[in-house]
Structures are given as structure tokens and as C-alpha cells.
Design a protein around this nucleic acid. Sequence first.
DNA 1: GGCCTGACTTTAG
DNA 2: GCTAAAGCCAGGC
Length: 103
Amino acid sequence: MGKSFRETVYELTKLIPPGYVATYKQIAVKSGKPKAARVVGLFMKSNPYIPQVPCHRVVGSDGQLTGYSGQGGKKKKEQLLKKEGVVFSGKKINLTISQWKPL
DNA sequence: GGCCTGACTTTAG
DNA sequence: GCTAAAGCCAGGC
């Protein structure tokens, strides 16, 4: 395969539509490495494709914002997602409604 | 090639 | 609900 794991992760992340989110685990599984959720996080922080890759639409397995290296940090990330239409249940995202389901 | 780090997840206490 | 520990894997030095 020509594509590295890294490229695959970014490709998947780019597919997340506004108003929806995906978990690190989800991206990891979809990219072929179910155990590489951590690496996915590392790629997000080292995201060289901003703003093409919406790394803010990737959250923890429970819909919780685990981190954000962008401007404003997690706080801003939350507001940004809300603005896009993502439904929050307190401090976490309501995955039942807003989790992205790739076809 | 080896060691350390980390935007994760899960299980156990 | 929280902290601790282990499993996993790519990137950087």
C-alpha cells in the first residue's frame, strides 16, 4: 500500500461532516489499526493539513474532549463543535445523536 | 536501532 | 466518580 497509516487517518478525518464527530478509536479502527487510537491523537496534534483536516471533530471514546492544540484549547473546540450543530450533554458530546457513521 | 513521549482505551480497585 | 496500570504504536532524538 502506498498510503501510510498517517495518510489514512487524515483521509478519514477529512470525511467527517460538520455537525458530527468521530472518536479516536473509531478512526483507528477504520484506518486498520484498532489499537492505535493514541497515534491518531498524535497525528491530530501534529496535523499538517489544517484546516483541511477537521481534527476538532475527533473526540474521546465517551464523547469527551480530551485535548486540543488549536487556539483556545478544548474550550474553543467545544464551542466550535456546538456551532457546527454537534449536540452536547453537559461536558460531553451526545454520541447517540452526533457520532459520525462512515458508510 | 534504542529510548521516551503522548489530543487513547479498558480494566481493576 | 477517581486514580493506577497495562497494552499499543508512530514520531522525534
